[in-house]
Write a protein that binds this DNA or RNA. Structure first.
Lengths: 245, 245
DNA sequence: GTGAAAAATAAATACGATCTATTATTATTT
DNA sequence: AAATAATAATAGATCGTATTTATTTTTCAC
């Protein structure tokens, strides 16, 4: 009968509360139960809970004040680009198509310009990483998980090759998008996947060949293709909702 | 001689450690002193320190492991777009011109497109906020602090009018840039400020008039003007360094 | 000697009890 | 009715102790 139940409790409390908040299970402005109660209800000590609360405060999701308690802050003050916050929003249970579209919109702003910069600034190592990732994508076409990983690797490598830390940071947003998309969006449509691979090939090689203009336009082409896929997915989700209603 | 020194300790420990880490006072891969020592040296209890450490972990700056201690994570894994992380990097003591240039680079990618979207999507309230901010900028031309605040307000309002939470989140990066720029960059050069105001006027009004194309190009013009100013500042910093060497 | 298993160890992780500081609310006074 | 003082609720912070985990050292068999 060990009372003290292992490790990683703070992390898990952060995730639980983070997901609840992202899913609006606690609404903006709402006040959480007092520390002791919340700790009890989560089966952890007050210290562990407090550490979790501090982490969430650091991400802008909540604010604490003595006597008044712990309050959910307005959504537009959250650190939306925080990797954890992104992943909580991507929870397949509660993620909305708007979420994917918002991410896609910013991808369409950042990625073509990142590709353009990468074509100019990539070192030989950068290029090697990019091409290796493309190879993996091709190799693992049949294995959804590994294909997505390689896809993420490729986009990450392109952003990194822009040699701008702020641009590079978008890898988390893109990774979140790609993971969510692969879960929510798509059963593997053979023809779409082939086309997608080809588009990735074109970007990778424009960068490898220092063609900034084509890197830009190939990135745009790729994201247009993605957009179509999201819109279809959204459409099919709507159909589903109609059916279940 | 109060041992228990008031409140807000966690916040202040987070800031102290955050700044040290951002300034590479602790280097990547380095291991921090053990909790008890570090807590003692900062004059706080171990719990307060632990809460601070958890916050910094949440922002990707450090990672903890039993037995091995608390280690500084590689820079490219930090949440660079976190408002706190941004502000720690903007510390005038240690901020580099590269920092400003990196931020300016991403501003040049995001803001014109945000302005374009704002021209299409802004509600009447959005437009009112944008124009009010512009008015303040004009009104407080002579008061550097208030002028910068109004400048930040204006850019924030434009991003908000894009109605995309991820784009809007950039307000922190822009605010950091503008604050740092006003501190580091510029004694107020009358002619530059007048030109700057004019450029802001043009953006605000293209958005108000739903002119997406001009909003885009006016945003580009404004940022080009900014770039010149950063490059001059960088140049003068280099001169200063030469003289002091 | 060498390699693998076992023990010691050092660090973070977690709990619980207790005290403090702050502040919203309530009660009191003017 | 308004200003002020008391109250109580809640987060903030500390201390001490036990647990867990991963590394290092030691032991022991081969």
């Amino acid at each position: 009968m060990k009372k003290t139940s292992g490790r990683g409790q703070v992390k898990s409390v952060v995730d639980i509360l983070g997901k609840r908040i992202a899913a609006a299970q606690y609404k903006e402005g709402e006040i959480l139960p007092i520390e002791q109660q919340l700790a009890d209800s989560l089966g952890v000590g007050r210290n562990a809970l407090r550490e979790a609360v501090k982490v969430l405060s650091g991400k802008g999701l909540i604010a604490t004040a003595p006597r008044s308690g712990t309050r959910i802050r307005p959504r537009d003050e959250w650190n939306m680009l925080d990797p954890d916050v992104l992943s909580w929003h991507a929870d397949p249970e509660t993620a909305t198509p708007e979420f994917l579209l918002a991410l896609l919109e910013i991808r369409r702003i950042i990625e073509p310009r990142a590709a353009e910069l990468a074509a100019v600034r990539a070192t030989r190592e950068d290029v090697a990483t990019i091409l290796a990732a493309y190879d993996d994508m091709q190799r693992y076409q049949e294995d959804p998980d590994r294909r997505v990983s390689a896809d993420i690797e490729l986009h990450t490598a392109i952003l990194a090759a822009s040699h701008n830390a702020y641009i590079s940071h978008f890898r988390y947003a893109i990774a979140t998008y790609l993971k969510a998309h692969s879960k929510i969006g798509q059963r593997s449509d053979r023809e779409k996947l082939r086309k997608d691979l080809e588009l990735h090939h074109d970007i990778a090689w424009s960068i490898a060949r220092c063609k900034a203009k084509s890197a830009y336009s190939n990135s745009v082409r790729m994201l247009n293709h993605g957009r179509l896929r999201v819109e279809e997915a959204e459409h099919s989700l709507a159909e589903e909702a109609k059916r279940s209603a």
